[in-house]
Design a protein around this nucleic acid. Structure first.
Lengths: 304, 304
DNA sequence: GAACAATGTTTTATAATATGAAACAATTTT
DNA sequence: AAAATTGTTTCATATTATAAAACATTGTTC
């Protein structure tokens, strides 16, 4: 059996950023390990604990030790250990054989596959997105609303050397960027209203719209035009064009977008081609989703 | 509030395929709803129940009702209901507002993003895979070993009309197909031995290798050649070329593969170009992983 | 239109299980 | 050589998960 220990270099890379509050879980009493007391009122049941542990794995720290994770979440090492072993048994986390530390398990590759099959728009839109990628040579991505955020659920990256990256799972608030604004503009008026009431517009870049009235005006324009554009509202140097996929009931299912580096976005001819092609693809896709709903009751399109 | 009911058409689409065993969970006694008694010996704790519920959502049935899922898993509707509500609160499942039924939540898009960041090979290989996609115009995919299966963790689909599809999350046993055989051939000899001892070779297509000795011989050839090929071993009509990415310690990190429709795979000139390009890319990628391991201690490559 | 049957959901007494402190074994650091 | 840190296991106890029944709502049947 291998060692449960990690070396000095690895340990140095860990900056917990945890303020000492209560001494806990060390065998000696010379205050070195601390944990943060749970602050949100509700006590977690065991399933919630397991889910919180899963959600602790993030891009900036994808690997955790047991005690370290206990310190972060406020659960005892014994509890963290037991839950992680259960999660490991089902593939939700994996354990490094050498360091004995944990990372997310490979099950999420499979679950993504299932998830995409339960979102009909993903299947329907993909072939059209490929057409769009072919005719514009830019990064094409598909977005949906998730709570108060945009989330990218499909992405075809441009083959060019200078290209925009838009990985699956990337998120942004609904007020910044063409895709976000497009999703918001074509939501129900109830949703827009409650969104604008609750949200505060933080500037993510110098070009983010921060004036609520300017945003409201822009949303109306987007709805009139049938598409949204942006330049550097969410990512500096990144331009975008986005248009909605609408089903037969007039409900927005998602937005297909192009992410274009500023240098090419500023070429008017290229921008016009991109816009024209995007609108053509989105209209075809909307027609597919419209037809499908009446023709096939189980939610999948009948391919002709 | 919307209705907890689903319509006739939707209900007709459900074929539970459950054999009656014990009558349960219906308010009248006219035996219509049944459930399967848990058969595997170990009793589940609540977290295991939650994970089993998550894993019940599959491609062939991505949407479930509470009682239906209770019948499938052997848990009472009250339990299923409570767990699903917890999972919903954290985004692990989502509930359709109209039908009140459940599907997987959008959290998995984000978790995939995190997972890919904890597998350095994914980041390193992607740009090289794009080069390969450009020079061969075929579908390129990246695979790793997960338990006793191959799993696809990155995929760049060909732009051609006739192309092979290989979605992220798709799996196959380690004895069928070029990618699988390549992963197996370059595993440790201990792993190969125990794998060959435990597994039975089922024919997935007429071309699947079912003779253990033939497989063993093929694995040795693959290790000698440095690459694997296959035609229709896992999917009829699908050819493939696969080669391993190896780090500085000689450990295999994954396999980069081309999936090629049979009609193009049979063209010798094209096949040779594909093979040559694959080997070139894989070698560059292995060099990257080798350099990275000694240069950067935190597991990410230093980009030049 | 009336009776019936199916659905998601809530309640509640009870049985089952999750919990944290302490100890353990292995290893690195001092 | 001693101290400190790690993942892991044990165990009495207190918390929590459980299933049956009931509820509210809607689809189906005759």
């Amino acid at each position: 059996m291998s060692s449960p220990f990690i070396n000095k270099v690895q340990r140095r890379n860990k900056n917990l950023d945890i303020k000492p509050r209560f001494l806990a879980w060390t065998n000696n009493n010379k205050n070195k390990v601390f944990y943060i007391m749970k602050q949100n009122g509700r006590k977690s049941n065991s399933i919630e604990k397991a889910l919180k542990l899963i959600l602790s794995f993030q891009t900036h720290q994808p690997v955790w030790g047991v005690r370290e994770l206990g310190a972060k979440t406020g659960f005892s090492p014994a509890t963290v250990q037991r839950i992680l072993q259960t999660l490991k048994r089902y593939g939700f986390v994996a354990q490094d054989m050498d360091t004995r530390q944990y990372r997310l398990g490979n099950i999420y590759f499979s679950l993504l596959h299932v998830l995409q099959s339960s979102l009909p728009i993903s299947r329907t839109a993909l072939p059209f997105m490929k057409q769009l990628a072919g005719s514009t040579a830019e990064t094409v991505h598909l977005n949906i609303v998730d709570g108060t955020e945009r989330i990218c659920i499909e992405s075809i990256e441009s083959m060019q050397t200078l290209k925009a990256s838009m990985p699956i799972g990337s998120r942004s608030p609904l007020y910044a960027g063409a895709s976000s604004k497009c999703l918001l503009a074509f939501s129900t008026s109830d949703f827009i209203e409650s969104y604008l009431d609750t949200i505060t517009l933080k500037a993510l870049t110098p070009h983010t719209i921060t004036d609520p009235q300017a945003l409201e005006l822009e949303l109306k324009e987007i709805k009139t035009n049938g598409y949204a554009t942006s330049l550097g509202e969410h990512n500096p140097g990144l331009g975008a064009i986005s248009a909605p996929v609408i089903n037969h009931e007039g409900i927005q299912l998602g937005a297909i977008s192009l992410a274009i580096p500023e240098i090419r976005y500023r070429e008017q001819a290229h921008r016009e081609v991109c816009l024209k092609e995007t609108l053509r693809i989105v209209n075809t896709c909307s027609e597919m989703m419209g037809r499908q709903a009446s023709a096939s009751p189980n939610g999948y399109p009948e391919v002709i």
